[in-house]
């Protein structure tokens, strides 16, 4: 009996060692350790043994069982590991293949520029005002110190619909309308983006429709130094902290004094290059102190109230910022163009 158990142990251990997979191992478990297995079978003959031998044999049987199941456990781990390895090997794939593209559109570059400017001024306490694209001659011109007959309001330059209505040529009428709404009281602090229209033939630098964004501040003690400070904050935030600004005299009918703002050229750092036409400076916007006639027409006492205004072209800024060389790209909407602006900066 003892020998038989030893035999069974050797036999089982050999089989366990040779087991090729988990199923085979389980079969071995069932056949040797199961209730109908040979060990149980052997133990059934225990009744014939003496009372002294019985516990010894029982102990031996348990030893054999433990040895087999211990071996099996080790083998099982080994086989499981092998199975995992096999699965992993089978599941290997080429990670360099492209992923499933996520559908993703993006802002038009002009919208990105406008929103960036809006947010910048919202942060400085401005609200965003909008107005009609078809305007009354009064708001587009007269209220802005451009009386009838003024050379700057030539019929040839504007798209008139009737004698008194036209497609606005700038976003400034929104300023006039907003001031009027405030009924001669301050403060007014607004930024006005929108589409404007001029009778220009479309080419690389002209477009009959384009964008403008203007700002206006009117209050009791607005100084030109405030304009300078505001524009400096704006320019540094939009174009970079290292950029310098300069104001130089200019002329607009609705501001006096009038200035244009240049920023130092990023390309050459101010030493002069083709982008800045050798001057080291790049023109960004027009600005000035609101003309007293404009204030008065909108119902403000120009003795008490002063204000500043500025305006710029998002196309120009986008062209400078991104190096776009043809204004028509903004309006043909070639997806190869639009896609380039999906990147958030």
């Amino acid at each position: 009996m003892q020998d038989r158990l030893k035999e069974l142990q050797i036999e089982a251990l050999e089989k366990v060692a040779a087991a090729a997979d988990l199923k085979e191992l389980n079969d071995i478990r069932v056949s040797y350790l199961g209730k109908k297995g040979p060990i149980t079978e052997v133990l059934k003959g225990m009744g014939k043994l003496s009372a002294e031998e019985r516990p010894k044999m029982g102990a031996l049987a348990n030893e054999v069982r433990d040895a087999i199941s211990g071996q099996m456990e080790g083998k099982q781990k080994e086989l499981e590991e092998a199975a995992v390895q096999k699965q992993l090997a089978a599941e290997e794939m080429d990670v360099t293949l492209p992923g499933r593209p996520v559908k993703m559109g993006s802002h038009h570059p002009l919208t990105s520029i406008i929103e960036e400017i809006e947010d910048l001024f919202i942060g400085m306490g401005y609200t965003v005002e909008e107005g009609p694209e078809v305007e009354k001659d009064y708001y587009n011109f007269e209220a802005l110190n451009l009386p009838k007959g003024h050379p700057a309001r030539d019929m040839q330059d504007s798209f008139y619909i009737t004698e008194e209505t036209l497609l606005r040529t700038h976003t400034s009428p929104v300023q006039a309308r907003t001031m009027e709404k405030h009924q001669g009281k301050g403060p007014v602090k607004i930024i006005c983006p929108g589409k404007v229209y001029r009778r220009d033939n479309d080419d690389a630098t002209h477009s009959h429709q384009f964008m403008q964004i203007e700002g206006l501040v009117v209050d009791e003690n607005i100084r030109m130094s405030d304009l300078k400070g505001t524009l400096e904050v704006f320019a540094k935030k939009l174009f970079g902290e290292d950029r310098e600004i300069r104001l130089r005299p200019s002329f607009f009918p609705f501001t006096e004094p009038s200035v244009e703002m240049d920023i130092s050229c990023k390309i050459c750092g101010g030493s002069g290059c083709s982008v800045c036409k050798g001057t080291g400076w790049i023109e960004i916007l027009g600005a000035g102190m609101v003309h007293p006639n404009v204030l008065e027409m909108a119902g403000y006492d120009s003795k008490k109230y002063t204000g500043f205004a500025f305006g710029m072209g998002p196309e120009r800024i986008a062209m400078l910022k991104y190096g776009v060389d043809d204004i028509r790209h903004f309006y043909t909407n070639d997806v190869r163009f639009l896609k380039q602006f999906s990147v958030e900066e």
């Binding site: 602090k189 030109m224 300069r246």
Partner: peptide, 25 residues
């Protein structure tokens, strides 16, 4: 006066007076 004094020489300030909350509608 401003241009001949030189806009470079103007102080750099920001509007004073009551603060206005900036926001989108």
């Amino acid at each position: 006066v401003g241009r001949l004094y030189g806009y470079d020489n103007l102080p750099t300030t920001l509007p004073e007076g009551p603060s206005t909350p900036g926001h989108l509608s």
